[in-house]
Nucleic acid binder design. Structure first.
Ligand SMILES: [Mn+2]
Ligand SMILES: [Mn+2]
Ligand SMILES: [Zn+2]
Ligand SMILES: [Zn+2]
Lengths: 144, 144
DNA sequence: AATTTAATTGATAAGGTATTTCAGTTAATA
DNA sequence: TATTAACTGAAATACCTTATCAATTAAATT
């Protein structure tokens, strides 16, 4: 059992929840597809190969649970469905996304560079920031 | 007729579209409620006082059209519906939003401070940025 | 290893937002 | 005023997501 699965087990136990085969298989699918920003239906289809009897409602419930437990993050690319990605457990903030408005490609940006802006905001707006979601829209190298 | 309505009329004419009372009333409602981030249903309810015979489908269609014409912007606060706000016509980028995770208050931040980050991204990722959407989550002055 | 029990599941119904359809209406141009 | 393509409202439809519920199961307790 890997680190992330171990962490899931602990967090579930803490709340009196159970580690079921369905939850294992769902998290496994997300772990094995990092960087792909899979939708619920896409995850459902992939999980079924490992766990054919799983129902769609269970996948919805599991993703909601993993999000609550801070293991994954829900992302919205305005394409009509929710997508999910594994959280980075070293630091606790979401990376940025570059979205090509022509071909739809999504590129991940790990450099943060928001420190100055966040300090400015905390000072000027008396607002305590604990997370952010940043999307840039434009043209990727193939499309510009 | 104010500047924004004039701009709408021009853009519609350019595409062979018509300036109808329903479109006028919808845009008027948005103009008269700046900073409120109204949802489609909320706009529908307010428009009805001025234009009681309007249908919900027309409001959906009009908001979609105003978005396409770059007069308003659709925003997503993950509360299950689309919200809209009037575009700033001086510069062409979206201001930032601070969202209080406790009380839900939304604060607008006009300072941009993303120049350095955007330059860095354009250089390192060979990506031509033309817009961004930035949300900060945390605690407002009342809630922290 | 068997018992207990609250959590979990899959199937399906139901909910909620958004879009499509279509016949009747209307803004804009000549 | 006549013409016509665009537009509208009402209702049906589509689609993603959540709720319901009886059957099952993980995990703690004997
Ligand atoms: Mn990502
Ligand atoms: Mn705003
Ligand atoms: Zn591209
Ligand atoms: Zn607050």
């Amino acid at each position: 059992m890997n680190d992330i699965m171990e962490k899931l087990k602990d967090k579930l136990k803490e709340k009196g929840y159970k580690l079921t085969p369905q939850r294992r298989a769902t998290l496994d699918t997300i772990i094995n597809n990092q960087g792909k920003h899979l939708s619920t239906e896409e995850i459902y289809d992939m999980v079924k190969t490992e766990c054919p009897e799983i129902g769609l409602a269970t996948v919805y419930r599991t993703l909601q649970l993993l999000d609550e437990l801070d293991i994954i993050t829900k992302i919205n690319f305005d394409d009509g469905c929710s997508r999910y990605e594994l959280n980075n457990h070293e630091d606790n903030h979401q990376h940025h996304h570059l979205i090509c408005v022509k071909c739809g490609e999504v590129i991940e940006v790990e450099v943060d560079l928001l420190e100055t802006l966040e300090e400015e905001i905390e000072k000027n707006y008396d607002f305590k920031i604990h997370d952010h979601k940043v999307k840039f829209f434009g043209y990727c190298s193939n499309c510009k």
